[in-house]
Design a binder for these strands. Structure first.
Length: 551
RNA sequence: GCGCCAGUAGCUCAGUCGGAUAGAGCAACGGCCUUCUAAGCCGUAGGUCAGAGGUUCGAAUCCUCUCUGGCGUACCA
């Protein structure tokens, strides 16, 4: 609708012999107050100066030219110079049957992203322990965004990079070896950076029990290798399992080790050197990322001959580019905020288009435990895991909760509050609306009131303002999805659903849906309920939250 | 020091591209179940949008400065 209105305004300005602005520059928005209509535009205000006309007069002219259109009940000019549009009742009523026709597809627009491939990388946690709360936020955001983009016709691939090579994993393996030695009553020295979580001990125990007695008889190096395979396998499958419980499935799991084995690292280093973007200094090799917008140059090969993380990550991103996506999105946690410029610099230096790559930067999640913020550290073993979160509040609540806030604001997650208040939770509020409708529909069925016998003309019986308000809200759903697909404002979906549920609950309280004496009215209301149900279902579904039929 | 993100009701937060009278939920207070699910509804109260300037028809939103908080600022990943 927004585009239609833009079009109409465009034509209207043209009809006045004025040169209209680009259609995309015509601002159409939802007014805050009902009395200003369903849509509103400020073109007259913003263009008044350019045309040397009074805003109000201009607004009136624009409105006049459009006002005869059957789409609108009214098009009017208001106070300072807004043009306000009210959608006609007829148009709204014609819209409802489309929702039922489209059912699961309502809200989607497969043309939007047709033929375009998007790669979405998220979570990509180190395989050094269970997934934590920040990973959970990333999982929630990434998966829901993927759903919405797919709903818009993009071909989306969800990807998880396993950082199974490098320092942190080495430390983890040594930490398990440490526990192993304790279990075997052997002497072992403490070392810097040892992982302390419970799971380290558990892994050691499990390793012992599964590998039987041979563990200490094989040479150190071989044992470490076996341990490595074992531990990575355990941890990664555990992460996968938990993600599945969280309703998140990845299309691709990429192993960093594999990338290294394939020689991608060397390739990346060679490319960088060939393009003359590296130099030696202080015994290390540097990448002059500052030439590409980074604030300073970065070391890529350390004095000890090892590479820094940028290199494998760059190598990995090269493979992304080579796979030919139209858009590459990385979702990063708060610890990577300073990292993105150098990655982009690397991409640019290698001759790829950095504009294809965009970042979603999540802010921190702090856990509130008994009114105190818990600082998490994976190595010290102080973490709240995703698994625990699922156990305590459930997947639905957790996923919805993470999406209720803007992505770039820090999130305080009070675990007790989320648990205690689960009855008052917005998730339940929305789900309850869905369940209620299911129940009503069932009830109607029992009373032999079949939607089959519904006819569109019955909708004329809907005479309450509440009913129109609901339809207006439903009308916005497809536009909302387009908006989120563009701006990634996932929190707007939770807001939308909460608002829709509120409209319904209030309506339900006021009106009896099924009344045996008025069959046509009842059917019209049932039909309306069904469209609400479909919309809530689709919305929740996109967020990875279930829409229960009973509660 | 520099960079990023934030500061809106007692608490947690919305507020879409700068729009018209600032919005929810929780907590508080007062009502509503013989009727399709009370996990619900209706009402009351609660605000110097951190502060000061600026930009303009119009600012919570944009710019500058100040204050407060978080994070980043590695030859970690």
């Amino acid at each position: 609708m927004i585009n239609i209105i833009r079009e109409k305004i465009f034509e209207s300005i043209k009809a006045q012999g004025l040169k209209p602005p680009a259609k995309s520059k015509i601002n159409v928005e939802y007014p805050k107050l009902q009395k200003f209509g369903d849509y509103s535009s400020n073109v007259a205000l913003s263009l008044a100066k350019k045309y040397k006309k009074k805003p109000m007069l201009l607004a009136r002219k624009i409105a006049q030219n459009i006002s005869m259109d059957a789409l609108f009940k009214s098009v009017s000019a208001e106070k300072p110079g807004f043009v306000n549009f009210q959608i006609s009742r007829m148009h709204l009523m014609k819209f409802l049957p489309k929702i039922v026709e489209q059912e699961d597809k309502f809200g989607s627009d497969m043309e939007k992203g047709k033929g375009k491939k998007i790669l979405l990388e998220f979570v990509s946690a180190n395989p050094t322990g269970p997934l934590n709360i920040v990973n959970a936020r990333a999982a929630s955001v990434g998966d829901s965004l993927a759903n919405i983009l797919s709903f818009l016709g993009y071909k989306v691939e969800k990807e998880f990079l396993i950082n199974d090579a490098g320092n942190q994993v080495d430390l983890l393996i040594k930490s398990i070896e440490f526990e192993l030695n304790i279990l075997g009553h052997r002497e072992i020295e403490e070392f810097e950076g040892r992982y302390l979580g419970d799971y380290v001990q558990k892994l050691a125990k499990k390793f012992l029990s599964e590998e039987t007695i041979l563990v200490f008889q094989v040479p150190y190096k071989e044992r470490l290798q076996k341990l490595r395979e074992f531990a990575l396998n355990e941890i990664i499958s555990n992460q996968r399992f938990t993600l599945k419980l969280f309703n998140v499935c990845f299309d691709n799991w990429i192993s960093e080790q594999e990338l290294r084995d394939r020689g991608c690292i060397e390739d990346a280093l060679t490319y960088l050197a060939e393009t003359e973007n590296t130099y030696d200094k202080d015994g290390a090799v540097w990448f002059c990322s500052s030439k590409f917008g980074d604030e300073k140059d970065r070391v890529i090969m350390k004095t000890d001959g090892g590479i820094t993380y940028l290199v494998p990550d760059l190598a990995y991103h090269i493979t992304k580019y080579k796979r030919g996506y139209h858009k590459i999105i990385d979702i990063f946690g708060p610890d990577h905020h300073g990292y993105t410029p150098r990655l982009k610099a690397g991409i640019a230096a290698l001759g790829f288009n950095p504009k294809l790559l965009s970042f979603i930067l999540l802010q921190q999640v702090s856990l509130i435990y008994e009114n105190e913020k818990v600082k998490m550290s994976k190595r010290r073993g102080k973490i709240i895991t995703l698994q625990q979160l699922i156990d305590e509040v459930g997947t639905d609540v957790a996923r919805f909760f993470f999406l209720m806030r803007k992505l770039n604001t820090p999130l305080d997650f009070d675990i007790h509050l989320a648990k205690e208040k689960s009855n008052e939770n917005p998730v339940y509020y929305v789900q309850y609306a869905h369940a209620r409708i299911c129940s009503i529909l069932q009830n109607a069925n029992k009373k032999r009131l079949r939607l089959r016998s519904f006819r569109p003309r019955y909708l004329n019986r809907l005479r309450f303002e509440e009913e129109l308000d609901i339809i207006r809200h439903l009308y916005k759903f497809p536009e909302l999805i387009l908006h989120i697909g563009k701006n990634y404002d996932l929190n707007l979906m939770t807001k939308y659903l909460t608002d829709l549920a509120a409209l319904f609950h209030s309506y339900y309280q006021k009106v009896r849906i099924i009344s045996p004496k008025t069959k046509e009215l009842s059917l019209a209301r049932l039909f309306l309920c069904k469209t609400i149900k479909i919309t809530i279902h689709n919305g929740l579904n996109l967020l990875g939250v279930s829409a229960p039929k009973k509660m």
